[in-house]
């Protein structure tokens, strides 16, 4: 692990990206402690403060550093709270999709036969059309809400994990150490859990990192389209959507700042994921 960090440190871009991710996560977690305003507290909002540009000192007696939105919400606070929602959704969906996908992929590889044929055909089918399509249909069917949204995101993303896990497990189970375990003999579940699974984790972690970013983006897209979370729990996507009507009227900050926050977070996560992938790739390590 110390070795991992020593190599990671050599890429300063990745270090900056990691710092951004950590900072954003920390800011999101601790938002209630220092955000100037609770954006969900409708009583605290004043329509007089609506659509004010960055730097405006509002009726609450504090400066709106990023301006306010159409309801007079402080944008900085809204973004911080929006990040909470986005990260929650992304991590929850990523974790569930990874568990489900890894289980399906590894079991398919281990059991073979019709399980493998059915599961992997479904996965291939799903990978052959855009994930957002499935998510849209599911959200439309299930309705709004955090659980529904997570189900939709998981359904859209588990296939990537299943594919990755299946590929890794197929490669691992042909290696001698798995044959040695089966030749001892050890029970099948033990071979899967103690031997195949731990060796499939590196590629899954890489895909997981990137898929958390994708889940955040997907959730933002759904929310932007009005299909995500209810307006009482605005995520970044909804903030962008809220500001959209004012884009052309010179009040672009309402959409732009949440958009920047979203891009920075997604890009940072992707850079971290790339670096982890490079370090797990044995061909690149000397």
């Amino acid at each position: 692990m110390t070795n991992f960090w020593r190599i990671y440190r050599e890429n300063w871009v990745a270090v900056v990206a990691l710092a951004v991710v950590v900072l954003v996560v920390l800011a999101a977690v601790t938002a209630p402690l220092f955000a100037p305003q609770d954006p969900y507290d409708l009583a605290g909002l004043d329509l007089m403060d609506a659509r004010r540009p960055p730097g405006y000192e509002g009726s609450g007696g504090f400066v709106h550093w990023l301006g306010t939105d159409a309801q007079g919400r402080d944008l900085l606070s809204a973004i911080l709270y929006g990040l909470r929602i986005s990260l929650q959704m992304g991590l929850a969906a990523g974790a569930v999709a990874m568990t489900l996908g890894a289980a399906l992929g590894i079991l398919s590889a281990h059991l073979g036969g019709w399980v493998e044929a059915v599961v992997m055909r479904v996965v291939d089918l799903q990978l052959s059309f855009p994930a957002i399509l499935l998510a849209l249909v599911l959200v439309a069917m299930l309705g709004q809400g955090k659980t529904q949204l997570i189900i939709a995101l998981v359904a859209a993303q588990y296939a990537y994990f299943a594919r990755t896990a299946y590929g890794a497990a197929t490669a691992e189970r042909q290696k001698d150490y798995v044959e040695a375990a089966s030749a001892t003999p050890l029970p099948g579940w033990r071979v899967v859990l103690r031997h195949i699974l731990p060796n499939c984790l590196p590629p899954l972690i890489v895909v997981g990192t990137v898929q958390v970013a994708n889940a955040i983006a997907l959730e933002a897209t759904l929310s932007f389209l009005g299909l995500g979370l209810p307006p009482t729990e605005p995520s970044l996507g909804m903030l962008i959507a809220n500001g959209f009507p004012y884009m052309m009227s010179g009040r672009s900050w309402i959409s732009v700042y949440p958009g920047i926050a979203l891009i920075v977070l997604i890009v940072a996560i992707n850079i971290v994921g790339d670096q982890i992938r490079d370090q797990f790739n044995p061909r690149l390590t000397r």
Binding site: S182, A183, T184, N199
Partner: peptide, 29 residues
């Protein structure tokens, strides 16, 4: 395989040991 009476030593010791398992656990498992 249904017996422990016969055991195997494989050719490539770089491939035949689980890279993520301590060797004590490998032997004791």
């Amino acid at each position: 395989k249904a017996t422990t009476r016969i055991q195997t030593v494989f050719q490539d010791p770089f491939a035949s040991l689980n890279p993520r398992m301590r060797i004590g656990a490998t032997i004791a498992e």
